[in-house]
């Protein structure tokens, strides 16, 4: 059984159909990348998986739980990092972690364990006790990522986790994600525009354009399938084949 099954998702906003039958599967312990141009339907897909939105049609099963029918149950095993999601600026880094630890844990012992893990992932040193409004953007993103991963979700959903970060911060975030999966065996679905990042992180990748999945495979398989030297080239060719537009 796959960890995540996305079956024939349709979703529209007003007259605009954003998802047109999106389907894919994600295996347990896998880092799965969702790649597509702006407006392709990445964020809508991730929002549906994370129970924020409901599909017009189709379903998402996460470890046997239908996220549309049983969202409360699904939320216990999912942790979601939205694109450009910030942290609570009037709380310290520690307090930010504590708040989410309290939401996900059953008792104080578990809260402490989660915070400890969060501090380790964020790796902010003494700054963890400072108000986050004094943090740089990179520090805040690391804290947000730590908040998402410290609860050890069965499925972590990361929407453009390195968006807007400088090179060093991006490298750090990628390293954290890779180590997290290696250590916990959790499953990750992430979206990104950075092909180097996707190639470095993802076991398998789905290309999405105009609300449809156009190709799924490992980075190697996709490069081979489109006769490309790198994933970026493969992506551009895949989108051109379907839509005749560039990425």
């Amino acid at each position: 059984m796959s960890a995540v099954e996305v079956r024939d998702l349709w979703r529209s906003f007003g007259n605009k159909v954003v998802l047109k039958g999106v389907s894919f599967e994600v295996d347990e312990g896998e880092i799965f990348g969702l790649i597509g141009p702006n407006g392709a339907g990445k964020t809508t897909t991730l929002r549906i998986i994370s129970t924020i939105l409901k599909p017009d049609k189709g379903r998402v099963i996460v470890w046997g739980i239908d996220v549309v029918k049983e969202p409360a149950k699904a939320r216990k095993i999912i942790s979601y990092l939205p694109e450009e999601s910030d942290v609570y600026l009037r709380l310290t880094g520690y307090e930010n972690l504590k708040f989410f630890a309290m939401l996900y844990s059953k008792d104080n012992k578990e809260v402490e364990e989660m915070i400890e893990e969060g501090i380790r992932i964020a790796d902010l040193g003494d700054a963890i006790n400072r108000l986050t409004k004094t943090y740089s953007k990179g520090m805040r993103r690391r804290l947000a990522l730590a908040r998402t991963l410290m609860v050890k979700p069965k499925l972590a959903i990361l929407d453009e986790p390195t968006s807007g970060l400088d090179v060093y911060s991006s490298i750090n975030v990628r390293k954290v994600i890779k180590e997290f999966v290696k250590k916990t065996g959790s499953t990750v679905i992430l979206s990104s525009h950075n092909m180097l990042e996707v190639e470095y992180l993802c076991d398998r990748v789905a290309f999405i354009a105009d609300g449809k999945i156009i190709s799924v495979g490992t980075p190697g398989e996709l490069k081979e399938a489109y006769g490309a030297e790198n994933l970026e080239e493969a992506f551009v060719r895949a989108v051109k084949e379907v839509k005749g537009v560039g990425a």
Partner: peptide, 14 residues
């Protein structure tokens, strides 16, 4: 505005 709401809504809290 700060996009913390989505994270909160996706958490187990009702």
């Amino acid at each position: 505005e700060r996009k913390t709401l989505e994270t909160l809504l996706a958490s187990p809290v009702s």
